[in-house]
Write a protein that binds this DNA or RNA. Structure first.
Length: 876
DNA sequence: ATCGTCACG
DNA sequence: ACGTACGTGACGATT
């Protein structure tokens, strides 16, 4: 439990302060907002700075208080609260409620007394207390546990009163503040005090005697003077004034400290109040993830038919889908806008509308779309081919802000300050509660999305140009989306019978292994449960614990491998894991994804997801089909061409990341090695181990050098390398040291890329893709180290991604130019998989490496290997 | 919803 | 001294 901190605010005093500190502002609807605005900025500041665990705003209750009983002129003659301020009090209450801060007022007592009582209670429980007011009387509450903040001049400028500060400023203790006020009186509260006694005299007297009581005890010894006369004449008034100025700390409150917990505002409610008051700057600055939609009226027309006259040369269109699975879900509706007129139509009316179809298919009719790939794929299913995509909100957002997650139009729009569109969750609900609402609501929602895309197009394109990223977006990502859409819609054929066959074999093997594991363990348990497995291995069988996880023993493969010699059960478990993974993910999982109609899987390539610019693949993930172990690799036998006498043709870049590194750091040795076509791991081994002849490099040396090369690409650390090679950290450090000495250009590059990231806050790839690294200047070692490794890795991984993306675009063009039937089906980070008729193999062998190797020119050559066969397994 | 694990580049 | 290799997605178990 962190230290508790209670913030007590004097509501009336602060409202008055804000009102008089700021000029009389009014908002669009004519309400005065200077007090509400001042109050809000003050709250924002104090909450941000103090981060309290409990909060309360106290208000004065009615007109009369217990003080009036002793002195009926108390606060008499005071100016009436200005009506311009009175009208703002309801909003101040609303604001406080929206912040989820407790409000409190009590009949017969003033805010001061409520605050005094709570401050005393809290301090007694060891809670740190901060009192905020515009009234200096409150400083009497200061103690070691209670600090009193008094606003100065404006509303956010505060003076902090601790007992020390009061001593410094007045030479008095906090308690003596009351006596001072008793003597001086208070104009605003109509407390008379002793006439003729001001601050200076009061302080002088108190320093000498200590308190009002002590002054009167010693009154006779005072030498005769005008002042003595005044004191004598007004003794009663002095005592009364002190009494009135004393804050009551034993108020019979009807609330307790427990009720004051503060855990942040109700963001939606707060946005609502801010909107009502017209606090645009605060709304813009806030990073709340609220669903608040601007109350901008949207004019749109629901039409049964989109007619020719509605179809303009440039329009934003939005095809609304049920969910992200656009290869299998249903479409909900369709909207289009040219900025002036917005039309909504049902899907039935879209699919059968020949005019619209022709317009969508017309390359010269320009479309602005939120997610062009999804739209293209869905339209394809409806028998419509989409062309002429000019703007893609998802891709533009991704290039500008690669870190934003989510593809909802509302989420993206909000990132760029556009809020007149609702989130899908707000409209449809989520999970089991998901439902399509009334047609009117859908029409408005979908129309708003189209308008959002239309409105954001100029904004985002300008930002891209400002960043010099427009080309990356327009010439790379946008055309790539079209190609990826085609690849996904085409799909890859899977032989389900082959998978079933393999599944049966696996099932039999698993049953045997399972039986021997139970036998060796002496009981049945769930081998798939790391928790239960941990109990068997480490508690029951007493194997040594090598690594732990947050929740218990680690049973990961690297741990189990070290335990193999300890017990026979371990190797069975390792084998069980391998086979169970194949069975659940690659046999059963894959079968579920095969579409019955065409016997194909249609993955979705996520183009706006990774931090580095790579693609990712889902439903199913076709970028992690097994290959390293033979048993798993056989899964690839189930991936086949879609037609008889066709083949699968696979081409992959050899060492693309290290070549990119060589290009970027221009290290002579590394560049030379690639230019001469050497085996890079062997070359590295020669340098790291100081061997002058390639023949002298042993396989262990090469394997080690390979791991070092991986480490370099990942942003090396001795620990990481030691883990991957299972050697000591010291040895790993020596390898790295040797490497960096052999390749000084690499070291220089790594140092400068980190320096650059620290300076600009981001790193870039060959095609100017950015990754922002806010943690690079963190004082937290872990965060900073991670950011530094990322700074080293991202330009390499990201540039490699740029290169293969460019190759895909060039390859698509080339296939069309050559009039080939061959189709690009998959991309797996550094390889492209095609299917093609046998007759085209020869030409592919020529053009695929040519196009891929020349996608982007580096100072080192790019090298592409390829192969083909009747299944993906054979294309090796 | 999150964790541990493991498949890929 | 700090505690990690970079980037992903899917599964079963568990909360």
């Amino acid at each position: 439990m962190t230290k508790q901190k209670l913030l007590l605010l004097d509501g009336n005093s602060l409202a008055y302060r804000a009102f008089f500190a700021l000029p009389l502002l009014t908002n669009d609807s004519g309400i005065h907002t200077n007090a509400t605005y001042g109050f809000t900025t003050m709250l924002q500041k104090i909450i941000g700075e103090e981060n309290p665990t409990q909060m309360l705003v106290a208000f004065d209750a009615g007109k009369t208080t217990f003080r009036h009983k002793s002195f009926d002129e108390y606060k008499g003659g005071r100016q009436k609260t200005p009506p311009e301020l009175s009208e703002q009090f309801p909003y101040i209450r609303k604001l406080i409620d929206a912040y989820n801060i407790k409000r409190y007022e009590l009949e017969m007592y003033e805010a001061d007394d409520i605050i005094g009582t709570l401050a005393k209670q809290a301090a007694g429980q060891g809670i740190e207390v901060i009192v905020v007011s515009g009234d200096k009387d409150l400083t009497q509450l200061a103690t070691d546990d209670v600090t009193v903040y008094i606003t100065r001049k404006g509303i956010t400028d505060i003076e902090k009163y601790t007992p020390e500060h009061i001593e410094e400023k007045y030479g008095l203790t906090p308690n003596q503040i009351i006596d001072m006020k008793g003597l001086m009186g208070d104009q605003s509260d109509n407390i008379p005090g002793v006439p003729g006694v001001g601050e200076k005299t009061a302080i002088k007297l108190l320093k000498e005697h200590g308190s009002i009581e002590k002054i009167y005890e010693a009154i006779d010894s005072l030498k005769a003077s005008k002042m003595k006369e005044k004191l004598v004449d007004n003794e009663e008034m002095a005592h009364l004034s002190k009494k009135l100025a004393t804050i009551h700390t034993e108020v019979p409150l009807t609330i307790t400290l427990d009720e004051l917990a503060y855990a942040g505002p109700n963001e939606e409610a707060l946005m609502g109040v801010w909107q009502e008051l017209g606090f645009k700057s605060l709304i813009e600055k806030s990073d709340f993830e609220t669903e608040q939609v601007e109350q901008v009226e949207l004019k749109y027309e629901m039409v049964s038919l989109i007619t020719k006259d509605m179809l303009k040369n440039t329009m934003a269109i939005h095809l609304e889908l049920e969910n992200e699975h656009y290869h299998s879900c249903e479409a909900i509706g369709f909207a289009m806008t040219d900025g002036e007129n917005t039309f909504y139509s049902t899907i039935e009316n879209v699919a059968e509308n020949e005019d619209l179809k022709a317009w969508l298919n017309d390359e010269t009719k320009k479309k602005y779309i939120a997610d062009s790939k999804a739209t293209q794929a869905m339209l394809h299913r409806l028998g419509i081919e989409l062309k002429g995509v000019e703007f893609d909100l998802l891709l533009a957002s991704y290039i500008l802000k690669p870190s934003i997650s989510g593809d909802d139009v509302a989420t993206l729009a909000k990132e760029f300050g556009y809020t007149a569109v609702q989130s899908n969750e707000a409209v449809y609900g989520k999970g089991a509660k998901w439902v399509v609402p009334h047609a009117d609501n859908v029409a408005e929602h979908v129309s708003r999305k189209a308008v959002a895309v239309w409105s954001l197009q100029p904004v985002l394109e300008q930002k891209l140009k400002d960043n010099e990223q427009f080309e990356l977006y327009k010439e790379l990502e946008l055309p790539l989306a079209h190609i990826l859409g085609k690849m996904e819609s085409e799909g890859i054929t899977v032989n389900v019978d082959t998978l079933h066959q393999m599944g049966d074999d696996l099932k039999a093997k698993l049953e045997i292994i399972e039986a021997s594991i139970y036998e060796l363990a002496g009981e049945k348990f769930n081998i798939n449960s790391p928790k239960q497995l941990g109990v068997i291995l480490f508690d029951k069988l007493g194997l040594p614990v090598i690594k732990k996880t947050k929740t218990g023993y680690s049973t990961a493969a690297d741990v189990l491998e070290k335990l193999q010699s300890e017990h026979d059960i371990v190797k069975h478990i390792l084998e069980y894991r391998t086979l169970a993974k194949l069975q659940s993910t690659y046999i059963e999982g894959l079968i579920k994804e095969v579409k019955e109609e065409d016997s194909k899987v249609h993955t979705r390539f996520q183009q706006a997801l990774t931090a580095t610019g790579r693609l990712s693949s889902t439903n199913p993930n076709l970028q992690n089909i097994p290959i390293r172990l033979e048993e798993g690799r056989k899964i690839r036998q189930a991936f086949v061409p879609s037609k008889k006498d066709w083949v699968l043709f696979a081409a992959d870049y050899s060492q693309i990341e290290l070549r990119v590194l060589a290009h970027m750091c221009q290290d002579e040795v590394l560049v030379d090695a690639f230019k001469q076509g050497m085996d890079i791991h062997t070359r590295t081994a020669m340098d790291v181990f100081g061997v002058s002849n390639a023949d002298e490099v042993t396989s262990l040396m090469r394997r080690t050098a390979k791991a070092v090369n991986f480490g370099i690409v990942y942003g090396i650390s001795d620990y990481g390398l030691s883990q991957s090679l299972d050697i000591t950290r010291k040895k790993a450090a020596i390898f790295i040291e040797n490497y960096l000495q052999s390749f000084p250009g690499v070291k220089y590059y790594m140092d400068s890329i980190i320096a650059e990231a620290k300076k600009t806050g981001f790193v870039t790839t060959i095609l100017n893709r950015r990754r922002y690294l806010p943690d690079i200047t963190s004082s937290n070692f872990n965060l900073r180290s991670f950011a530094e490794r990322t700074a080293m890795n991202t330009p390499i991984q990201g540039s490699a991604a740029d290169i293969i993306k460019k190759a895909m675009i060039d390859m698509n063009t080339r296939l069309e130019q050559e009039g080939l039937k061959a189709k690009l089906l998959l991309q797996v980070h550094d390889e492209l998989i095609f299917e093609a008729p046998k007759e085209e193999i020869e030409i592919l062998e020529r053009i695929v490496p040519e196009v891929m190797e020349n996608a982007i020119e580096l100072i080192v050559p790019l090298k592409v290997d390829f192969s083909y066969g009747p299944t993906w397994y054979d294309a090796k």
